[in-house]
Design a protein around this nucleic acid. Sequence first.
DNA 1: CTGTTAGCGCCTTCAT
DNA 2: ATGAAGGCGCTAACAG
Lengths: 336, 336
Amino acid sequence: MPHTIRDVARRANVGLGTVSRVLNNSQNVSDATRERVLQAIQELDFSPNPLGRRLSLGKTLTIAAVVPFFTRPAAVERLRGIESALAGSEYDLIVNIETPERRDACLRDLARRERVDGVLIISLPLRGEDIDSFQAAGVPFVLIDINDPSLKAVDCVVVDDVQGGRKATEYLIELGHRHIGYVGDPLDGRFGFTSSRDRYLGYRMALEEAGLRLRDELHKHGQHARYEARLMASEMLALPKPPTAIFAASDTQALGVLEAAREAGLEVPNDLSVIGYDDIEIARYLDLTTVRQLLFESGEIGIQLLLERVKDPLREPTWEIVPTELIIRNSAGPAG
Amino acid sequence: MPHTIRDVARRANVGLGTVSRVLNNSQNVSDATRERVLQAIQELDFSPNPLGRRLSLGKTLTIAAVVPFFTRPAAVERLRGIESALAGSEYDLIVNIETPERRDACLRDLARRERVDGVLIISLPLRGEDIDSFQAAGVPFVLIDINDPSLKAVDCVVVDDVQGGRKATEYLIELGHRHIGYVGDPLDGRFGFTSSRDRYLGYRMALEEAGLRLRDELHKHGQHARYEARLMASEMLALPKPPTAIFAASDTQALGVLEAAREAGLEVPNDLSVIGYDDIEIARYLDLTTVRQLLFESGEIGIQLLLERVKDPLREPTWEIVPTELIIRNSAGPAG
DNA sequence: CTGTTAGCGCCTTCAT
DNA sequence: ATGAAGGCGCTAACAG
């Protein structure tokens, strides 16, 4: 049976309050009694019951992280950053993996002050009402990888995906490519996955600045999965005037493009250049040129923002923009 | 400001106890008053404060999962199973990612009744003293993917890795291979990662049963990483009498073997057959023949065992053995 | 400086 | 069937 603060008090011959003061590093304790209390704590191998503490403090000392059902490699890496940032602290991390069915119940549940002190939402399409319910309940939250300008008023950690998409496309243009395809996620909805859309925007901007025409048949949008990406790429490669390079909105999708190339008997990078996005583990193995995001770091930053907001609910919202980096490997080469 | 049970009681004109009874589906409430209480709950959008509830119940209603620092794809998939199994329940899942430095502190921390109701430990090398401290503290725990016969007295979900290693090797033998290499993790320690060791055992058993000699230079053990696996495979392939097939203890390591083959100018599967283990996402893409484990399911089963033990601490320990399945693709073919 | 007391929100006896 | 009271372990405000 675990000991309580009362056992410690008895053993050290002090009142409960004193033990509590020692536990909370209060100044108003003489060195002598502090010593006695610490000794008793040690002898009993006592550690305070977090539930009692939390109830009394009126805080849950718990942070929830919500990640999408499709736990993509990128999301896992972000989660690692979050966990790591929380590790030394007194906060617990509870993890929720959203499924389409549980989605609403889960968000409703978390939007209650008595559940958690704060929520970190990763890459998850949010509706306006979701935001509202968090705000109405006064539950601090931070969004990671959801880049929506209409959310200027909430704390966000966003990747500069426009820049990333641009870097990738510009690089291909530098290599002499003029017919550059794009394969990415659907562009729907205000609160859809925003990262793919922004990468697409970057792609378009780079084309435009280089004076290249955006050919409709060279940008396709479908489910974020290798198989779909492969189909889209195959269609492109079958065109009378196929692209000489394809930029995929994620490494996963780049894999699909590579598959399509293989299937079409094209060699990479000689016949087709491919660039991905994320720099997941496998990218290095496949020698895939890609755009690296600071995934782990984005999780750490998210926690930092969240804890600051927990401390000061009235502070100005922050948009933390995480830069991207083009990792040049061998899946993209000079044009024909 | 969230409401309390007291607000509900006032609004429904009943005592606190009655509200509590309604919340806990106690029988001793008349239909009429239950109705009134439920209505008040709805009107106030009340939901009970979990902290109060937990403190009062003397339970934390929280399960901790501990996963190793190297969050391999397999561990992530297990975690998904765990989360999913806990989703509908009243339990929270807190996730701990072990690092070598935090390891001891983390385990000590979790081995306290007042912290969590139960702990799920995944693929983590445990020492006898770790087991002891959990048992001494009376904290229920279940091990997943730690196959150590000396742990017969604790609940475990283990994969039949001996069988898996055997299936893979037997398949290679059937294909006519006589010189079959093995690349896996180190074999150290009683509580080391056990899965690789068992796969190795299966490999040896299959060789033996086929009357094939175990050639010392054809089995190598090193860090669980692609790079190390590649080095080991390269050495093997440089032998005067190199293997015609290599069984790797994980898909990650199989990637290293594929790299080594490519480097050596060998074509897979014509010049070299390769089999991996885990059937992670990427395996299908690479057309890698591999041994599939029921990763997601192993997490679900772990939770099931754990909750049963929480309910009945005295029940007999269970060893749940999860079968394996050989997934035949195109990285292994007939011997030269 | 230190002991005592009154909650935090809920559950559970014990009377009625 | 229901209301009142005591307690879960802790913190914080109040006396002294």
